[in-house]
Structure formats: structure tokens, C-alpha cells
Simulated assay, not measured.
Amino acid sequence: MVSAEETLPLVIALHRLLRGLRRASGDGATPPTQLIVLGLLTQHGPMRIGELAVRIPCSQPTATAVVATMRQNGLVSRAPDPNDGRGVYVAPTEEGLRTLRSVARGEAEVLAELLATVPPEDRTAVLDAAPVFLALADRTAPSP
């Protein structure tokens, strides 16, 4: 069993690293919640706003406001739920996909530069951990 005390330094380091990558990549235009929405829609396909709220996680009114802003900015589209006339599905637009790829590429370039400064065995360990982190990220988000 791993304790919270043992994982705390990793959590802090990950927060600092991600914030630093974002800052160094120069993309401050796309809010983090919008990037999370685009990532979820890309990974899981179109979703209802309630599903997004659960996966983000945030309240449904917050998810609704985020999606409305994203729609105004051309990042997502909405389509009626064929099984429920009151519901809508949200999907990324081509512009949304381009935005997500651009931000991720910029952060990946910064991370590649940083990894070039550490010993090869450390670089390998970090890169080999990517599938583990992805699996852990998927486990933290409850399925709707």
C-alpha cells in the first residue's frame, strides 16, 4: 500500500510541471477546463453536458457555461440527442481539435527540451510512465 504522504511530493511536482509547461509553451488563451473538455470529447466521443460535468468534474451549470463559451469560440458543436428531445450532444469541431493538438504539441515541445537535460535513464523512466499515468487518469474520472 502506498500512503498519501509518499505520493504528496509527486502530486505537487506534477502540478508544478503541468503549470510550467503551460506557461512556457506560451498558450494562455485556452482555459484549462476547455482543454479538459476537448480532451474528453476526443478520447470518448460526443457527450451530453451532464456526462462532461461528471468527467471534468464540475457542476452541470459550470459545464453548460464552459460549453457555451466554447461553442461561441467555434471549438465545439451541439447536436440534438436523437433519443431525448431535451438533451444535446457536444462534439469537438475541427477548430477544437486543432486547438487541442496545438496546445498539446507546444507543451510536448517544452517537455522534450526539459527531458533532454536529464540523464537518459531518467528520461526513459518518465516516458515509460506515460501509460501508467493515462490509466490512473482514466480511473479518477467516474463513468457517467
Rank of each mutant, 00 (worst) to 15 (best):
M1V: 10
V2Q: 09
L8D: 14
H15P: 04
R16I: 10
R16A: 14
L17T: 13
L17V: 11
L18G: 08
L21W: 03
R22Y: 10
A24I: 09
G26S: 00
G28N: 05
P31F: 11
P31E: 13
T33S: 05
L38N: 03
G39W: 01
G39P: 07
L41D: 05
T42N: 01
Q43H: 02
Q43F: 00
H44Q: 04
H44I: 04
M47S: 08
G50N: 10
E51H: 11
E51W: 02
E51N: 08
V54P: 02
V54L: 00
I56W: 01
C58N: 06
S59P: 06
T64F: 08
V66W: 01
T69G: 14
R71D: 12
L75C: 05
S77H: 08
P82M: 06
G85F: 03
R86N: 12
R86W: 06
A91D: 12
P92G: 07
T93N: 06
E95H: 10
G96F: 00
T99I: 05
L100Y: 08
L100W: 08
V103C: 10
V103K: 04
A104K: 00
E107A: 07
A108D: 08
E109K: 13
L114K: 09
L114W: 15
T117S: 07
V118A: 03
P120C: 05
P120Q: 05
D122N: 14
T124Y: 08
L127R: 12
D128H: 13
A129R: 10
A129Y: 14
V132F: 05
V132M: 05
L134P: 01
A137H: 08
R139A: 15
A141E: 01
P142V: 00
S143Y: 11
S143P: 03
P144Y: 09
